[in-house]
Design a protein around this nucleic acid. Structure first.
Length: 826
DNA sequence: GCAAGGTC
């Protein structure tokens, strides 16, 4: 029996399909899919199935000095036990093993991990390696016709990275955490990739804080020709003879303004017309995909998660790639053909197929692991995917369209006019040939009108404006901009960059979007810059890359590189030893600064945002236990302390971050004071008859609101109300319950909530309508729940027990892959 | 309970 090992299940299935000509059988062992045909078995790993760590005696942070980790041994242990177990069983019976992991450095290491597991149980079996850049019939057949051996040097390069990252990361993370007394969940992390990324954000924040705005003026005039007006802006030549628009002295600005306002006409002195070719974008790699998705409102994390779902469902290719050159075996015409006749995408595809020749664009990066992200030709029907998934799918399809479309052509028209010695310029642009913009409508194509004029022509001055402005601090990095910058600096990989940002959020280093660094982050970067400069610099990665290349080419060994790295870390720790307390104090102070709201009204110490043992947030006094003053915070979301301060109490306002339900809570002390009973609505249906209880709108101290009985706590009758918006009690009464109808005013459209009892009953009815826990799964909506119910699947339990292929046959528009996906999520 | 890198 020959055993073929791939990096992931998906690849295993596709390779089995190709090599078996579609005749493979599949079975499951230990929850791992095994594909079998004609004496061959193919199994997919799940990336790394073993991980590096220190021996268990190093695991207690308090018992081990961080510096000891530098020379501690590093062990490999299985992290995916079931896959390792399956691999061992299959390897024992194998007469030949073929490693078919991804064609890149990490793939070689993952391949070596599989190699070692196989060798452990089967000393003699021949083990070979195949390499292919995309899982297509040709590439895979060729690779299996010409097998090669594992490249142990390349794998060793990856192992060196693992060891260096672990040793540096763990030793420094433990040092900082111990120095500040931050153990448990709130440790203070440091790493080769996360720390330089954090420094990017912190450096930008420092620039913003140090920024000193300067006043300047800009002048605009409306010029008219034949009754239509267009804008012109004053400019001059600066000392370097460049065109400049900003006037730095008010007196000069006033003088220009008065001259322009005084004159009726400007004379055209120069007309410059040129056409510019606007070339279509290059194929999507991960970073460019994230950037484009972010431009239409998706966070990096969300975009990648949707892309992952579309990939597993078979609609797009692998979403983690650096490649921006389509492989030779991608036939653009064939792929376009798949979209012909489609309701929303067909028209674009058909127009592209009319071209005489179809030549896709190419980016600078051509790699061996995966093709650029493109559609597979399989098109989901709208019911198969959520709106967000469709939007991302369409983006990927249209990007592919754009890469095979014609260039666009713009006509630029620059008109320079003169008033006395002052000059004005107008920049017009017109899209003459829309080209790829027709099939890729995500770029801005707004035009700017400037009419045809001739030199010497006089144009009427309609209006003149003098605008006073201030220079602005540099802008914070947005998430996609950060990911691009990380790529430019070589930080992280296509698969990890977006996770690194998520990690910085989780560690309490950044908050909000665009991300802002916390005081803790500033202190961590400070400490690292002072004592371990290397770990916050992108050069550590650059050096590591060079070292890995040296290992891969045989010029250096794993030990050369890791020994040298350990020595550098020893030196850092020698310098750190005396400063432990100083660093700890600074970190502790910054941690407190991040939680501080303002003075306690009872004792004057600081009020801090704290977290109870159960995880809920509240406001407590730093003077505790001497001062027991507390204030509640809403139970939904994570509190973010805003810059704005409450005038009455001098406390910072609080915002509750809860995804789409994010809201501003305001000053917690004001909220507590406002708490109490609002307007009476009517008789309590529970105790009104007997005890005369009445229903009132109530605000709890936490800020949440409800309709409750005035006899609380004797009567606990209550109805929920929305958290946000002003509640209006109308004159309309509900016939059934004799209560006034309510309207909620929250920004946009008023929400006619109606009678609170009717509203609650409707809400409950809706809840119990589908009544299925299936709806809790990502990607299953009410319609799909109905469809599944028709096929006899009414709960998550039903779903996990069913066979995907049978269900896919029974339920229209749901693929077996999607079902497997749900089963995995369940 | 540390890193970064795979993948689900």
């Amino acid at each position: 029996m020959e055993l073929i090992i791939t990096e992931k299940d998906n690849a295993a299935r596709r390779i089995a399909d190709i090599l078996s000509g579609g005749t493979f059988d599949s079975s499951r062992e230990n929850g791992v899919n095994v594909y079998e045909w004609g004496g061959k078995r193919c199994v997919g790993l799940s990336g790394h199935v073993v991980g590096v760590d220190f021996p268990p005696e190093y695991s207690d942070w308090r018992d081990v000095e961080p510096v000891e980790l530098i020379d501690a041994s590093v062990e490999k242990t299985p992290t995916k036990e079931n896959i390792v177990a399956t691999l061992r069983i299959l390897a024992r019976k194998a007469e030949r093993v073929t490693i078919a992991t991804d064609y890149d450095r990490e793939g070689e290491l993952i391949g070596k991990e599989a190699y070692e597991i196989v060798r452990d149980v089967n000393e003699d079996v021949p083990i070979r390696r195949v390499r292919f850049s995309s899982i297509t019939e040709n590439e895979v057949q060729n690779a299996f016709d010409e097998p090669d051996d594992l490249d142990f040097d390349l794998a060793a390069a990856g192992e060196a990275r693992q060891i260096i990252d672990l040793v540096w990361g763990a030793a420094l993370t433990r040092f900082l955490s111990l120095s500040a007394g931050q153990l448990g969940n709130d440790f203070i992390s440091v790493g080769r990739v996360q720390s330089p990324t954090l420094k990017l954000i912190v450096d930008r924040e420092r620039e913003i804080q140090a920024f000193d705005p300067e006043d300047y003026w800009e002048l605009f005039a409306d010029l008219a020709k034949n009754g239509t007006t267009f804008e012109a802006q004053y400019f001059y030549r600066d000392e370097d003879d460049n065109e400049a628009e900003r006037v730095w002295e008010e007196a000069v600005a006033d003088e220009v303004y008065e001259t322009l306002a005084d004159r009726d006409a400007a004379t055209v002195v120069d007309v410059n017309r040129r056409t510019r070719t606007d070339t279509p974008p290059t194929p999507f790699n991960t970073t460019q995909f994230i950037r484009a998705a972010s431009a239409i409102g998706y966070s990096a994390q969300r975009a990648m998660s949707i892309a992952e779902d579309l990939y597993t469902a078979g609609y797009i290719t692998y979403p983690r790639t650096d490649n921006t050159v389509y492989p030779d075996d991608l036939d653009p015409e064939e792929l376009l053909d798949d979209f012909v006749g489609h309701a929303t995408l067909g028209e674009s595809a058909e127009s592209l197929l009319e071209a005489d020749e179809i030549v896709p664009t190419e980016g600078d990066e051509e790699t061996t692991d995966h093709p650029p992200i493109h559609p597979t030709g399989e098109i989901p029907s709208r019911g198969d995917v959520s709106d967000d998934e469709w939007e991302i799918f369409e983006l990927v399809v249209r990007r592919f369209f754009a890469t095979v479309a014609d260039a666009a052509v713009w006509e630029h028209l620059k008109v320079v006019t003169e008033v006395d010695d002052y000059r004005l310029k107008s920049n017009g642009k017109r899209l003459v040939e829309p080209g790829y913009h027709d099939v890729y409508p995500y770029f801005n194509t707004s035009e700017n009108f400037v009419p045809d004029v001739d030199e010497g022509e006089e144009l009427a001055i309609d209006d003149v404006e003098l605008e006073e402005k201030q220079t602005q601090p540099p802008r914070r990095y947005g998430q996609s901009r950060l990911i691009e910058t990380m790529e430019d600096l070589g930080l992280g990989t296509k698969s990890t960059r977006h996770n690194t940002l998520e990690k910085l959020y989780d560690r309490g280093y950044i908050e909000s979007d665009p991300p802002r660094p916390t005081k803790l982050a500033m202190a961590v970067v400070d400490a690292a810059e002072n004592y371990a400069d290397r770990v916050v610099s992108e050069e550590m990665t650059a050096q590591l890359e060079a070292d890995m290349d040296a290992i891969a080419s045989g010029e250096a060994t794993l030990n050369d590189v890791t020994d040298e790295s350990r020595e550098m870390l020893e030196e850092i720790f020698a310098n750190l030893a005396d400063s432990r307390e100083e660093i700890g104090d600074h970190l502790r102070k910054s941690l407190k600064d991040d939680k501080r709201l303002g003075p306690c009204p009872e004792c004057g110490e600081d009020l801090l945002v704290r977290q109870s043992r159960h995880g809920s947030y509240f406001v407590g006094c730093d003077g505790y236990p001497d001062c027991e003053f507390t204030l509640p915070l809403p139970s939904t979301g994570k509190p973010l302390i805003l810059d704005s301060e409450c005038e009455e109490h001098g406390l910072n306002e609080v915002k509750m971050l809860a995804g789409r339900q994010t809201f501003v809570h305001g000053c917690p002390l004001c909220k507590a004071e406002d708490a109490g009973e609002g307007p009476i609505l009517g008789e309590c249906p529970e105790c009104g008859d007997e005890h005369g209880g009445e229903l009132a709108v109530k605000t709890l101290q936490s800020g949440s609101r409800l309709v409750g009985c005035t006899r609380y706590p004797d009567c606990e009758y209550s109805l929920p109300l929305p958290r946000r918006g002003e509640i209006e009690v109308t004159d309309e009464y509900c016939d059934d319950h004799d209560l006034p109808e309510l309207v909620i005013h929250n920004g946009d459209e008023p929400w006619e909530l109606g009678c609170p009892i009717c509203n609650y009953q409707e809400f409950q009815a809706r809840e119990s309508d589908t009544g299925s826990d299936l709806e809790a799964l990502d990607g299953i909506g009410a319609k799909t729940v109905e469809k599944l119910a028709d096929a006899g699947i009414e709960s998550i339990d039903d779903l996990t027990e069913s066979d995907p292929d049978t269900v896919a046959d029974d339920v229209e528009g749901v693929s077996a892959d999607r079902i497997r996906d749900w089963q995995a999520k369940a």
